[in-house]
Simulated scan of single mutants.
Amino acid sequence: MKIGKQSSPYQAICTSNPETIIVRGHDLVEDLIGSISFTEYTWLLVAGSLPDEKQRRMLDATLVAIAEHGLVPSVQAARMTLAASPEAVQGAVAAGLLGCGSVILGASESAGAFFRDIREEKEASGGSIEAAAEKLLRRYRQEKKVIPGYGHPLHKGHDPRAERLLEIARELGVAGVHCQIAKTVETLIPEIIGKSLVMNVSSAIPCVLLDAGYPLLALKGVPLLARTAGLIGHLLEEQTRPIGFIMSHAAAGAIGYDGPAPEGFVANEN
């Protein structure tokens, strides 16, 4: 039974015969292995063509920026999963990636779509970036939607990662309309939302990559790919300096029980 929308029965990423493996039209062995970086390979796999030097450096910078950010919930999930199942590194990596959602790591795609909507509003109306951004921000405010990619619990004045990515985009000459939109939104937020919310790395990644020519629909994969490297690092450390059960014990000690219990019962999980 046919389920969902279908297209022609073809894919254009990889094929092979007994002698040759072709990836995006390139001979894997003769053209790619040992000749290009993994960042270039990622761009090729996703976008279908090899990046130029500016595109390579921009994607590389975003991957470095987001790969590691300490013991965030997704990392804790991965480390505690490995503590419980030390033979399943792949399961622990998966647990960490499954913990990457709209709050942790998942805002890049939604921020990119937000910037696209502002750009399209500007193009359709023939007005300014400021007018288009204000219109979309007021709509989000009215609908009580979160502005994706703005605000951070630690980096209040500015997110240094975001500022550096924008700086690199300017240095490379790739900063364009999406970077302008991102900064314009930041300046408009206090008046429209009622409080200051700075650009965080999840809005910097899409604006610099979209200006560099990276596909919007693949934006979510950038932080996932980057954070996989960070998770592997944490999981190696978990095998040599385990803290998974320490975190579990700390959680049990920090979170009290306030449900019903028999008279005289005293909790002591230690």
Rank of each mutant, 00 (worst) to 15 (best):
R141L: 13
L137G: 08
P153C: 03
L154E: 11
G126W: 11
H155L: 00
K135E: 10
K156I: 10
R141M: 13
K156H: 10
P153G: 01
K156T: 05
R119A: 02
E120W: 06
P153S: 04
S128T: 15
L154V: 15
K156E: 03
L137W: 12
L154I: 15
Y140L: 12
E123F: 03
G126C: 07
G149R: 02
A131M: 06
Y140W: 11
E134D: 08
R141A: 11
Y150P: 00
R141E: 13
K156G: 00
R138H: 07
E130P: 00
E121P: 03
G126V: 11
H155W: 03
A132K: 03
G126A: 06
Y150D: 03
L137Q: 10
L137F: 12
L136E: 10
P153L: 05
K135H: 14
K145N: 09
R138Q: 14
Y140K: 01
R139E: 14
Q142S: 11
Y150N: 03
Q142I: 07
A132L: 11
E121T: 15
A132I: 12
V146C: 06
Y140R: 03
E121S: 12
K135D: 05
A131V: 05
K122W: 04
K135T: 15
S125R: 13
E120H: 06
R141V: 13
R141T: 12
A124P: 10
K156F: 01
E123I: 08
R119W: 04
G127P: 00
Y140G: 01
A131N: 09
K144E: 13
Y150C: 01
K135Q: 14
K145P: 02
K122C: 08
A132R: 04
Y150A: 04
Y140F: 15
G127C: 06
L136V: 14
K144G: 02
V146Y: 05
L154A: 11
H152A: 05
R141H: 14
K135N: 11
R139A: 12
G126L: 08
G149V: 02
G151N: 07
R119G: 00
A133N: 06
